[in-house]
């Protein structure tokens, strides 16, 4: 079973990203594949490495990065949504004349086509949002 996941909300304000993480871990434990996680709307805010929650709280961004590294999951941030909200990789920051990037390890920025492609390739598409 191959899954494509869409996360539509940022960390901390909504539970969506937490639920998506728990779901992905449980799916991997069951031996299923997470083909791609696509971050859209405020969901792009899951992918900034400048997230510094208090020490007694979970670090959602790091959880995603860790999961991606351990299981080679493709974490894709929508470029149009990211540009609106200030999430940049090095190339994009340079292109926009900005003084730095903030994308977290394991995430990459790409287009909405990746979401549609995920829906086509995966057996199941799930949406976590508000």
């Amino acid at each position: 079973m191959k899954y494509s996941i869409m996360v539509n909300e940022g960390p901390y304000t909504h539970q969506a990203s937490d639920t998506a993480l728990h779901f992905c871990k449980a799916a991997l434990d069951a031996g299923y594949e997470i083909f791609r996680v696509f971050f859209y709307h405020d969901g792009v805010n899951n992918g900034t490495r400048y997230t510094v929650p208090p020490q007694d709280d979970r670090n959602i961004q790091k959880e995603w990065s860790k999961l991606a590294e351990a299981h080679e999951i493709d974490l894709v941030i929508c470029i149009a949504a990211a540009q609106r909200r200030g999430i940049m990789d090095a190339d994009e920051a340079k292109r926009q004349g900005l003084d730095g990037d903030n994308i977290a390890p394991g995430f990459r920025i790409s287009g909405l086509g990746q979401l549609i492609e995920g829906g086509i390739i995966a057996d199941r598409q799930l949406v976590f949002g508000d």
């Binding site: 539509n8 859209y40 709307h41 149009a80 949504a81 287009g111 909405l112 549609i116 492609e117 086509i120």
Partner: peptide, 19 residues
Amino acid sequence: TVYALESLEVVLIGAAFEQ
């Protein structure tokens, strides 16, 4: 909220992928 606008953006890409 932005959902209507950003939904429309996905719809157009879906069409571009000939779905």
